[in-house]
Design a protein around this nucleic acid. Sequence first.
RNA 1: GCCGCGGUGAGGUAGCGGUUAGCCUUCCGGCCUGUGGAGCCGGAUGCCUGGGUUCGAAUCCCAGCCGCGGCCCCA
Length: 432
Amino acid sequence: MQIDTPRGMDDLLPREFALKRKIEEVIREVFALYGYLEIETPTLEYYELFAIKSGEEIRQRMFEFEDKAGRKLVLRPEVTASIARLVSTKLKAWPQPIRLGYIADCYRYDEPQWGRRRRFWQGGFELFGSKSPLADAEILQVSHEVFNKIGLKDHFFKVGHVGVLRKLLEEFKVDERDQDKILTMLDRKEIDDAINVMRGLGVGEEAVKAIQELITLEEYDHERIFKRASDTLSRWKEAEKCLENLREIIEAAREGGVDSPIIVSPGFARGLEYYDGFIFEQGIPGIHISFNGGGRYDKLVELFGGKPTPAVGCAIGITRIMQYMLDKSIGVPDPPRPKILIAGVSKVSPRYISKVSRNLRDLGVAVEVEVSGKKLPTAIEFAVKNGMRYVVIVGEREEEGQKIVIRNLETRTQMEVDLVDVDKIMEVLGGT
RNA sequence: GCCGCGGUGAGGUAGCGGUUAGCCUUCCGGCCUGUGGAGCCGGAUGCCUGGGUUCGAAUCCCAGCCGCGGCCCCA
């Protein structure tokens, strides 16, 4: 019998689940603060939805199978495609801009390792209907805000613009599919192969040289890097415009409160082929995987049959953040648990214990009932060990008089109270 | 997809050809008839799976499975 979880898929224990909840709460808080409406899409989608434009890397790493009617289905490897599908269909008559948020589990058939699971959670922000740098900057702002609120204040950004390289290639009539191929190669640091492909497609030597230069540019000093990059690109106006766009985005984000380090990398490419403008990743020093990534994808909605709709978004790696925080033991909350245990003693009837618990819960007080037949000392020990603050003791004597004994575990004192004396009970329980 | 390292009760570990498989935490019971985190006593659960070598395997060999890291890439 196979009783383990499937490879790379984790059970979340109470502590882990509480942490996941906390991160989700932060994300939802930011949804609300910026106007992102939360939605949900199916975990299963048709293969085609992702096959079209999600990138070779993802395509090979999907869980795929056939349903009983022979349709090809996949477990979603990410959510952006589903959201774009939604915008191109059900939301096509909505007034834009449209801001959507999601928190969803995703699946990839990867080799599991630190920060990479086969099932993992992403929290996403997607903004449709704006070409303005303000929209891109907003995605940086929400990312910044989420990480700060979670307590990861030392995060940094790495930003780039796919248009820089794409526009340059377009000058030499390289079609989109070949661009995808080249960008993927550059992303994988297969520089020589990329150069060979470019030459094969008739890209001029000056441009090849420019690209080689661009991919080595990467630093914090914005002024210097923009100067150098625009010198390199001065001959190709379209590519230079993209660079200018990137500069505007960064400036807007800075004014919008994004005060973490931003590494500018004009030759930066990302694996998801649908990106066609601003792109970024967010990380933490010393960790070599990114915790958040996103960018602009102006063609995707159109690709799914919608009207041309510019879009920009990001996907925050909740599972990675969790793993980091658990490893470092930072900000891991205790699972919420009642502070009160009701323990029966001697010949008290189950009816009375049940009644007492009902009364207390009606007052909004969270209680656990001792149901395992523990004797009182053991029950008290159990309560103490589990961080509870009161034991409500009910026995025959209390049942006869319709009373309860509330014992305070911290002060080691106790008091008998009438079950109907609501004010007294609340007073003794001190607002728990 | 590739490359390393590793699998001993629920968790953490010792043992590395012959041990009654040891220790810590946990869990259960008792000391304790309705009042405390302690203590003491007792108890429960284990050598990943399958082959092989050997008089004898947790220990050595092979394969598989699983886990952990790294590469690549990604969240």
